[in-house]
Design a protein around this nucleic acid. Structure first.
Length: 751
DNA sequence: GCAACTTCAGCTCG
DNA sequence: CCGAGCTGAAGTTG
């Protein structure tokens, strides 16, 4: 892949560059073809818009006038770089003109000029409320209609559990038996020994073997914890989507916490398996009432996953390893074992351009250990695929791709329903006979992988993105360009504002106490009891080695300037700035919004809420008019329960309930000065949350407000957070707006 | 490249 | 016939 080297560097890739990011030109060069607007000469820019191709980018983008208008320099380092959009001075109007090769409607293209046509667009930015159905996401119902005549009744070869899709063990005995299984002495009903028992959270791995009598005892607290949380876990609505999301969120929380512990103890790094085993043992799963053909409730086309175990716990694809999931289903009077879901691992070179066709290789035949390769056999999964060809049942397809954000990782994308149209045998390069199945995507389904492919193409070559109004709203101030696009109407720009990357404080920074730093050499290590930064965070580093936030908490303390550790310390995450390809886009009915070209993992840092710090007194006067005011109001349950995991393994919950939630005094206005965060809309079913972070100044009342991903977010999905509930703001008169998010638990209004 | 690990199907046994 | 319990097969992940 021709991925630019600047693409979401992982910690391993972090260059040994200690320049403070926010005050200098982009640390990572922008992709070729994008003018970074720094002092160096820029390559010719070719953009393609629906209106046709034009050179030189956006109007006078490349010329010296533009450059001087967007003059850079370190002189404004105090507040980071500030670049004014659509300067209000008439003189600069020309320089601010963009997005149009002609001059005839230059006025309309004038960026954010308050007098230009753009001003009609009053409903912009974060005053608006995002839909619960993100742009790249559709309800499963759509694809359900495309199923065709599948009237088979799945025979459950599965033990049927409670009809409740997510069911915690309501039978305490089960867990007891599960533990009792270690001795096999109880004589009572014994749950099949999960290999969870081999995961001892403290001892690491049992060195051998599959012999269950040698297995170690899982943490005893496990049982109690799962019972305690029964009520907090089940989403009140019973909505399948909510349940799936709750299960995935729990899995992730558990996984992150286990990884954190593993990293501290340098033990096994298979936190995914541990989390999965706990979920299985506690019956914390979705859609576990039996396998099924076709749509899985609560799983939507385009959903992304990072571990096979995730597919498992939501009932999308049961086998933890195998690529073919199958079941016995009824066809008329006959039973047949047919394939129901496949995971195309992406190891084969399919015709990648046609996302509606998939040639899938049968399973087996690979040499493992000492065995030799052999021809594939028509049995199990392969046989089921063959039966599916004749039975013509739909098959769910999950496609695996290399994770662009992680060198070694993989992303799985649910791509909806396919049907097998053809099968044949083929001799592979290795000389073995292998089965091939040609699947065609059922028509009428929303795009899944197609969107992924498209946005990946944009990342590699941004000039392929159409409808671009501006190639970088940040004018080079962010690590990566922020595109401004409009696919829906003629609006040319949001209302005027000035792009800054650091919060503007009302009082001089020198009056604030610097945060005390640690003395760790090189990097802070997890498990180092002497690291005062870890201590400040409660004994653990708040981020995993890949930079994901482990837990939401009242405050996260990163290492800062006064620490002795290096730039590469894993406890420096948010201060390094944006690592995601964002675009500000025009939504259908909620003004402008924010979304990403990259897939985003739950726990990833997105961006900071940047604006002017507003004094309390001043705020009361202004808050009515300021739609860009950020306040730490109590968010909804989804956000508050992001940390569900720790309780499951008997640790103290770090959750905050609405009753105990206390807002911080900080108030930030991004009306005049701001960054991408000001475009994030509200949703009662958000995919982003805010988290207070400190790394430079010691001030619990005025920390940085950082945004993190609440769940995995597919590319091109609108990013939204919960603006907070009404009535929690004690100062001033709260304004309630009608909420349009449309989520099943929409509160109907927001601040 | 290797070691370590999972879930479930499919079987046997009582 | 049913459920418990065992084994083998599948590939993922670090």
């Amino acid at each position: 892949m021709n991925r630019p080297s600047n693409f979401m560097p992982t910690p391993d890739q972090d260059v040994l560059d200690v320049k403070p990011l926010r005050t200098l030109a982009p640390m990572f060069p922008a992709p070729l073809g994008v003018n970074t607007f720094n002092q160096s000469t820029s390559p010719p820019l070719i953009f393609v818009t629906p209106a046709g191709q034009f050179q030189g980018g956006f109007g006078d983008w490349n010329n010296s006038v533009a450059k001087s208008f967007f003059a850079f320099g370190s002189k404004d380092a105090g507040v980071g770089k500030a670049h004014t959009f659509g300067d209000q001075n008439a003189d600069d109007g020309k320089a601010a003109t963009f997005g149009d090769q002609n001059t005839d409607d230059g006025k309309a293209a004038t960026f954010g000029d308050k007098d230009a046509s753009g001003s009609q667009n009053t409903a912009i930015g974060d005053q608006d409320c995002a839909g619960g159905q993100p742009a790249a996401h559709w309800s499963s119902d759509v694809s359900a209609n495309a199923n065709g005549p599948i009237d088979t009744t799945p025979i459950t070869v599965y033990r049927a559990t409670q009809p409740n899709v997510i069911s915690l063990d309501d039978d305490d005995d089960d867990d007891e038996n599960y533990v009792a299984n270690q001795t096999s002495a109880s004589g009572r009903k014994i749950k099949r020994p999960s290999r969870l028992s081999r995961y001892n959270m403290n001892d690491g791995l049992g060195s051998d073997s599959s012999n269950s009598t040698k297995t170690k005892r899982p943490k005893a607290s496990h049982k109690k914890a799962s019972a305690d949380n029964e009520l907090t876990m089940v989403p009140p609505s019973g909505d399948p989507r909510e349940i799936v999301e709750a299960v995935l969120m729990t899995f992730e929380a558990l996984r992150r916490r286990h990884l954190q512990m593993d990293e501290a103890q340098e033990t096994s790094k298979r936190a995914d398996l541990k989390a999965g085993a706990i979920m299985m043992a506690s019956n914390l799963r979705a859609n576990n009432t039996g396998k099924r053909i076709g749509v899985v409730p609560g799983v939507e086309i385009g959903d992304i996953f990072y571990f096979r175990m995730e597919l498992c716990v939501i009932g999308l694809h049961a086998p933890s390893m195998a690529g073919i999931d199958y079941m016995v289903a009824k066809f008329g009077d006959e039973d047949d074992s047919v394939a129901i879901c496949i995971v195309a691992a992406g190891g084969y070179d399919n015709n990648d351009d046609d996302t509606d066709v998939l040639v899938y290789s049968g399973s087996g035949g690979n040499s493992k250990n000492n065995e030799e390769r052999h021809d594939q056999k028509l049995e199990r999964g392969n046989l089921a695929l063959e039966r599916s060809l004749s039975r013509k049942n739909v098959i769910r397809v999950v496609r695996g791709y290399k994770d662009p954000g992680c060198l070694t990782g993989k992303v799985y994308i649910y791509d909806g329903l396919y049907r097998i149209h053809e099968s044949w045998k083929e001799k592979t390069k290795n000389g073995i006979i292998c089965f091939k199945y040609k699947l065609l995507r059922e028509p009428g389904q929303p795009d899944g992988v197609a969107i992924w492919k498209m946005s990946q193409k944009w990342v590699e070559n941004p000039t392929t993105r159409g409808n671009v109004l501006h190639p970088d709203l940040s004018f080079g101030a962010e690590n990566l360009p922020v595109f401004l696009v409009n696919d829906v109407d003629n609006d040319k720009a949001p209302q005027h504002f000035t792009y800054i990357t650091q919060v503007k404080h009302s009082k001089p920074l020198s009056s604030m106490n610097p945060l005390k730093g640690c003395r760790c050499l090189s990097v802070c290590l997890p498990g180092d009891a002497n690291c005062c930064c870890a201590q400040r965070n409660g004994g653990n580093l708040p981020y995993s080695s890949s930079g994901l936030l482990v837990c939401r908490k009242p405050m996260v303390y990163e290492c800062g300037e006064s620490c002795q550790c290096s730039f590469n310390c894993r406890n420096k995450v948010t201060q390094k700035g944006v690592r995601i390809h964002f675009e500000v886009f025009k939504t259908g009915n909620r003004g402008w919004g924010l979304r990403s070209w990259d897939p985003i993992r739950a726990g990833s840092f997105l961006c900071e809420y940047v604006g002017e710090v507003i004094d309390d007194a001043k705020c009361d006067l202004n808050s009515h008019e300021d739609d860009y005011m950020f306040q730490t109001l109590c968010p909804g349950e989804k956000t508050l329960k992001w940390n569900y995991g720790p309780e499951l393994i008997g640790e103290q919950s770090t959750n905050i309930s609405p009753d105990t939630f206390e807002p911080l005094p900080i108030k930030l206005s991004a009306k005049k000065l701001g960054n991408i965060s000001r475009f994030m809309n509200h949703s009662c079913a958000p995919n982003v949350f805010w988290q207070p972070v400190q790394f430079d100044y010691e001030d619990d009342r005025h920390p940085h407000i950082m945004f993190f991903a609440l769940k995995h977010i597919p590319p091109m999905t609108e990013l939204t957070y919960d603006y907070g509930d009404i009535g929690t703001d004690s100062s001033g008169v709260p304004r309630a707006k009608n909420c349009l998010c449309g989520s099943s638990n929409c509160r109907g209004f927001f601040i």
